[in-house]
Amino acid sequence: MKIFNLKNIGLLVLLIVAVFLPVVISDYWRFVLTIAFFYTIMAASWNLLGGYTGQFSLGHHTFAMIGAYTSTLLMQKAGAPFWVSIPAGILLTMIISSLLGVMCLRIHGIYLALITWAFAEVVRNYFRLHYAFTGGDRGIDSPLIFGTMKPTPYYYLFLGIAVLAIVLIAVIMRSKIGYYLRSIRDDPIAARSMGVDIVRYKIFVFMVASGLAGMAGVFYGHSIGLISPVMGDFNEMAMIIIFVVIGGMRTQAGPIVGAISVRYLMELLRAQSEFRIVILTAIVILIMRFFNGGLMELFRRLKKWIRRDREGPVSAYQELEQKQG
């Protein structure tokens, strides 16, 4: 595979643009993009779990909350430094997600969605109700990692970890494990019969995806300075799914395109107040009706239309017949 193909060059250009963008945009937009990068990690990691592997979790946002609370509570209650609290937050999300993954091994579809949603509600309500320890609905102050509210360092921090998460997911999906994950989603019985250890890889993907969400959550808390059970609201999960679906499920660029474009759109529509949710959901309906592969499918169709698809569709059966003469 060539490293310097058109796609990779395009990605490099985008990355360079992202690096220099803060020079020309205001603090407000730096903050907006920082949040968009946070959601990019959440959407990309959920896509690994729900998109590529077919494990439709509704508890993904909860791992960001667990990561954020773990790190913050370790610092606030035990006086742990960042270098202890941050890895501990990520590690704990990975441990909890592995346990949840083991519990959910034989559960698919709507049942998996319900169990993970129930788990998310248990955790959210724990943080809400355990007021003395977690600060309840009021939330808890989270020490700022750069000691300032200026958005620029957080912009670069989240750009860095978003790139790291996306590269990690791309490496997994191009490896043998990526093949196994796709086979598990497509037909787990066939996968198992062909030697794929579906138990191991289901737990693995749960752990990696949740670990990434935990990492995003940990840094999110230490970037905005206040965490609360709002992080665990079901709306958060719905937004993550919307980002993936609008961008393009089971594509690597989809969650990035979805998270950034939808966040951008929501900011543009900020003046419309709550009415922007109506506009957003109307867009979701339109995209799902006409391009259920999301914006990536729209791009693919445009590309195809521009190239005029010279060969035209030939059925696989016709090809075999031709070969056999």
Binding site: K176, Y179, Y180, R182, S183, R185, D186, D187, I189, A190, A191, S193, M194, G195, V196, D197
Partner: peptide, 26 residues
């Protein structure tokens, strides 16, 4: 190895990708 009465191939994967998985597991 086994086959199924109704072919269980991974429909969203290419023919070549279908072939690679059992080899990878070995």
């Amino acid at each position: 190895m086994r086959t199924f009465q109704v072919a269980r191939v991974w429909r969203d994967m290419t023919v070549l990708e279908n072939m690679l998985i059992p080899a990878f597991t070995q």
